[in-house]
Structure formats: structure tokens, C-alpha cells
Simulated assay, not measured.
Amino acid sequence: MPAGPAPTVPPVSSRHQPRFRSAERKEALAAAFQDQGEDYDRLRPGYPGAVVEAILTHLPDTDDDGSAAGADGGARAVDLGAGTGKLAWALAERGLDVTAVDTSAAMLETARRRGPSAPSLTTHLAPAESTGLPEGMAHLVTAAQAWHWFDAPAATIEVTRLLAPGGVLALVWNTLDVAIPWVHRLSRIMHAGDVQREDFEPAVGPELALIERRVHRWEDPMPSHDVIDLARTRSYVITAAAERRNRVLANLDWYLHEHLGHARGSIIGVPYRTDLFLYRAAVP
């Protein structure tokens, strides 16, 4: 009997970044994360070591400009929209002196509780577009899962103000790997709004120039009930009415345990892609 046609990947996104129907809706969705520190920290993945190492290879020599050196002479980093500190702590654990910046006191409190595995992380409550931090203080500025929430032109200007000569901006996104058909359907059911086109590029101001882009594919193993709870960290689900939120969670339960046939509580390798964009100040 001849084999049937190979399964095809359904159409994915044509977007370079998440779309918001209005500035007010964007602000409301961003505010939804304010009190999500514990769930976000438990359920959202961290950043692969290979991606963190790729960032570090582009750091300028700390001896070139003492203004960006930390207390021990090492590199200093500012993590904008740091949330619960997943990337900030990964950098601190590799010896950087890190300032984690966010507008959510609850998120930053969760970040502080992740320590004290490294002594060189401080938190700072401020918007990414106007941090109030000293000019030229950072060899590295990062934004992980966060740049699309900022006013890109204003954030670009603030980044260039914060960077020391030769400093680097790293923009990082973990997104579900929707090139895999079952993951694409999963993302649709949980209303994952951060799905972007394969070749997407973030919007940055002309003050910055792209020096490298990398894509790293990997899996995050999670119990099946945590995959369902992952939807609770999505802004759409957080802000939905209770009836709609319960329907999303019930659909996920059906999809994972009945349609895909995973046993309840079994470990599912959730495929992700991590997109990394590295920038330096543009040459005039």
C-alpha cells in the first residue's frame, strides 16, 4: 500500500514581532506580567549555555575602558526587562557584574530570591527607555523576551547611552519551535503571541548595527501538567475572562493527553528555538 503524503508544516507567522491592536492593548498585556514572577520563573525556560557563551565572545576587553568595569575589574552588564532574572543570573554566574532592570517589583523580587549563587547581581526598578543608570557603564546590555515590549527608538537611544566604547547589545528570544507541526498546533491552542517568522528581525534604531545573528534549537523537558500551566504565563491567557482561560487549559489537556497520547505527568520535550541578535553602535 503506498505511503500517504508526508505531513506538512502549517503556515506559520509572517510577523517580525508580536502585533498589538493598539498602544493601550500593548500596555495592558505588558502589565499582565507584573504579578507573575513565581509562575513565570518556574515554567518559562532559561537560556541555553551555548547562547550565553555566544554573547560573551563579543564582549570588549575590560581593560579598554575602566568606566565599564565592575568592582573586581570584570565586565559590567545591564539586563533590560530582566523579569525574574533568568538571563541576568546566567551572566552573573559567569563572572559579570549585572544590573537587572525591570518595571515590576514582583519580578525583581523573584530575581533576588534566585541568589545568592553569585554575589554580583543588583536590581533596579525602572523602564528600559529611561533607566537613570550612569552613561557608559556597561560592556553589555541585554534584553531577553522583552525588546518587543519596549518603545524601540527610545530604548535604542538608551542602550547606546549605557554602552561603553565597543560594548554590545544582545537581544534574545526563546520561542516555541513552530517549524514542528505538533508544536505549531500547541502554540495556536495556548495563544502564544510571540511566534514570529523564521527570518524575523527586531526593530532597532539607526544608532545600532547588527554584527551577528544566531539560531539555536533545543528542547526543554517538562511534565505534561507544566506544559498546560505554561499557558498561564501567556499574556492572552492571563488577561482572558475565566471561561475563556479555562477553555484554553481544557483544550491543552485534551491535545496533550488524548490527541497526542502522552500519559498524565509524563515528561514531554518541548522544542524551542532561541534567536540571538548582537549589535554594536553604528559607525557614523
Rank of each mutant, 00 (worst) to 15 (best):
F150V: 03
L162P: 06
L133K: 11
P153S: 13
E135I: 00
T131G: 09
F150A: 13
E135C: 04
P134M: 05
A164S: 15
H139S: 15
H139A: 15
L140V: 01
P127H: 12
A154T: 08
W147S: 04
A155Q: 02
A154I: 01
A154E: 11
D151P: 02
A128G: 12
S130E: 15
G136A: 08
G136P: 08
V141C: 07
M137A: 14
D151I: 09
L125G: 03
S130F: 05
A143M: 07
T156P: 01
A152C: 06
L163I: 06
A144Q: 08
T160E: 15
I157K: 12
V141R: 01
E135H: 10
L133R: 12
A144D: 03
W149I: 10
A146S: 15
I157P: 00
V141E: 02
E158K: 04
W147Q: 06
V159M: 00
H139C: 08
A154W: 03
A164N: 06
P153D: 12
A143F: 04
G136I: 07
Q145P: 08
L125T: 10
G136M: 08
W149T: 10
G136L: 07
G132C: 13
L163M: 01
T160K: 11
P127R: 14
A143H: 05
A164T: 09
